[in-house]
């Protein structure tokens, strides 16, 4: 588990250094995710016989964090108590904009995904065994 914590923190740290050093518009943790993803892909390619990632401490640590992802938004969410005045000051407009836009975005995204997937899922893939 020690190594898993070190890997997650290390990837985030390198990501933060790259984001700030190169003035990238992406947050450090997102770069850290890309780095860890590249490392995992590389490992699977070099040692295809190696243990599945789920059986390793990094797999267990990731599963634990992602299973409790909702908890991590609670401190920021509680910050709403400082902003209730602004939310109510703009009457129903802001609330309707949030509800309407979120529903529309969910619908449009899912429908476009399914429409395009219907055309591309049937096609054979380049890497598929024939």
């Amino acid at each position: 588990m020690l190594h898993a914590i070190l890997i997650l923190l290390g990837c985030q740290l390198i990501g933060e250094v790259l984001a700030r050093g190169l003035d990238l518009p992406v947050p450090g943790p997102v770069i850290g995710m890309a780095l860890l993803f590249a490392a995992l892909q590389w490992r699977a390619r070099l040692r295809p016989e190696a243990a599945d990632i789920g059986a390793l401490p990094i797999g267990a640590a990731a599963a634990f964090l992602l299973a409790n992802l909702s908890l991590l938004f609670v401190p920021a969410g509680t910050g709403i108590i400082r902003q209730t005045a602004v939310l109510t000051a703009h009457g129903p407009g802001l609330i309707i904009a949030l509800v309407g836009s979120t529903a529309l975005t969910l619908i449009v995204t899912a429908l476009v995904f399914v429409a395009v997937a219907r055309r591309t899922d049937a096609r054979p893939q380049a890497g598929d065994p024939s």
Binding site: V30, F73, V116, A117
Partner: peptide, 25 residues
């Protein structure tokens, strides 16, 4: 939240075959 964002790489890696096929959608 930072380490959890990094941890998203693990399911991405495990489901990469499914993700790669779905790049156009």
């Amino acid at each position: 939240l930072g380490p959890a964002t990094v941890a998203l790489a693990v399911p991405l890696h495990r489901n990469w075959a499914t993700v790669r096929r779905a790049l156009p959608p």
